[in-house]
Design a protein around this nucleic acid. Structure first.
Lengths: 143, 143
DNA sequence: GTGTTTGCAAATATTTTGCAGTAAG
DNA sequence: CTTACTGCAAAATATTTGCAAACAC
């Protein structure tokens, strides 16, 4: 979704269109790095000298509630974010903590499978696969 | 694994066998609630009046490194722990935040599948399924 | 102009660390 | 008796909140 589309959605919902909101969404939309709040803040503060962490937190929370970003819990002390809201697995490097999408995989049938196995009414899934990325694998120094 | 077995392992590794360590592992072993550090601390402090949060953090970290507990990141502000270290999916209630095991499911083939799809060397997986538990489903008030 | 948003600073929550006293072996 | 461990308190880290000034509309 483009910045223009975001502007339309924000207006429809009665939210104001601010440069900070557009910049944060634009940054998330144009990266595959699955950044944390801090990484978003640091990548934007040069162009927005007054950008604050609080604004990044508030904006990401809003985007999450609008279902325009998804939150990942890869096992670090902080969350990471992905503007690709389609349910897709993530692979995480034990060593360099890189987070990549696994886009070609079709694991959507798992929700149905799990629904049959439990009395829960399952709506969503988060699948994380851990190992060593191409750059880190082979090089000793384990986990 | 029993408290006695834990004692043996601790001794083998050169760690001391303390009442706190046994109590924390025993608590984790005998619950299916996937407690957070705080929940462990609160459930033990009545019987161990001097139990401290720091000791719970340190002990759980040790158990994690010994591969006697696994850490879950279900999307809250803190981690949860499971003394069942076998790789098994978890189901989480959006409403009451209950975390249950999905023990009958066999999803072990996913690691192989993912290994073929990426250049990562995948070693482990964490699968989370979100929805409404039997007690919460049906009752309005969404997510 | 009105009402929301920003960004600072303070507050809260979670986890880690330093260290003196305590307990395990 | 020696060394590791506990538990307190302080520090470090992550996130949330209150509020005055600034901005969107």
């Amino acid at each position: 979704m483009s910045i223009e589309d975001l502007s339309i959605i924000l207006k429809e919902k009665g939210f104001k269109v601010t440069p900070q909101r557009l910049a944060i969404y634009d940054m998330l939309k144009n990266t595959k790095s699955h950044p944390s709040i801090d990484m978003i803040y640091n990548s934007l503060k040069d162009n927005f000298p007054t950008m604050s962490l609080a604004t990044v937190y508030k904006t990401v929370d809003m985007l999450k509630k609008l279902n325009l970003v998804q939150e990942l819990n890869v096992g670090e002390g902080s969350f990471r974010y992905d503007a690709n809201v389609a349910s897709h697995p993530h692979v995480i490097c034990y060593k360099c903590h890189r987070v990549d999408d696994l886009e070609d995989a079709d694991f959507d049938d798992l929700i149905e499978k799990v629904n049959k196995l439990t009395d829960y009414d399952i709506k969503n899934q988060k699948l994380y696969f851990y190992g060593y990325c191409p750059q880190c694998k082979g090089k000793d120094t384990a986990k």
